[in-house]
Simulated scan of single mutants.
Amino acid sequence: MSWPVTAADLTALGQSIVADSAGEITSFDVAYDELNLTAPLGRIVQALTHLRDHPACRFEVLIDLTAVDYPDRAKRFDVVYHLLSMSLNQRIRIRVETDEDTP
C-alpha cells in the first residue's frame, strides 16, 4: 500500500481480510480514514492471530485495548482492539460485541 492510504486502499484491504479470514472476521467498514473490522466473539483470538500472521496484514503490535458501553443494545459492550503494522505503516481497529454476562 502506498502512502498516503486512500479510502479505496482501505476498502480493498478490508475486502481481502474478510475473504481470507475463513469467518474469523465477518465485516468491515472505512470511517474517518480508518479500517474497522468486526469479529464474532468466540473467534477473536483466531482473528487477531490471522491479522498478525497473514503476510498481507502483519499487524504485530497491539496499541490499545478498550471497551465502549452502549446501554440500549442487547449486546451492550464493544471490546475494541487497535493494531499497528510497523512494516506496512498501517493501523486498524477490530471489535467484538458482548453482553453483560459473556466474558
Rank of each mutant, 00 (worst) to 15 (best):
H54W: 09
S85T: 03
D29H: 10
P71D: 09
P55L: 00
N36R: 10
K75P: 00
G23D: 15
D33Q: 12
L51Y: 06
D33E: 11
L62A: 04
L35A: 05
P55E: 14
R58Q: 15
F59Q: 06
L65S: 03
D64H: 04
R52N: 09
V45R: 13
L41Y: 13
Q90T: 10
H54D: 12
K75I: 00
P55S: 13
L37A: 01
L62N: 11
D33M: 06
V61H: 07
D64G: 01
L62K: 12
R58T: 13
G23P: 03
A74D: 07
G42D: 15
E24F: 07
R43L: 06
R58Y: 00
N89E: 09
Q46H: 14
R43C: 00
I44W: 05
R73E: 13
P55W: 05
D29A: 06
P55H: 12
R73F: 03
L88D: 07
N89T: 11
H54I: 00
R91L: 02
Q90W: 08
D78N: 01
T26F: 00
D33P: 02
E24P: 00
T66R: 14
V30W: 05
A67H: 15
Y81E: 08
S27A: 15
R73T: 02
L51D: 02
V30E: 05
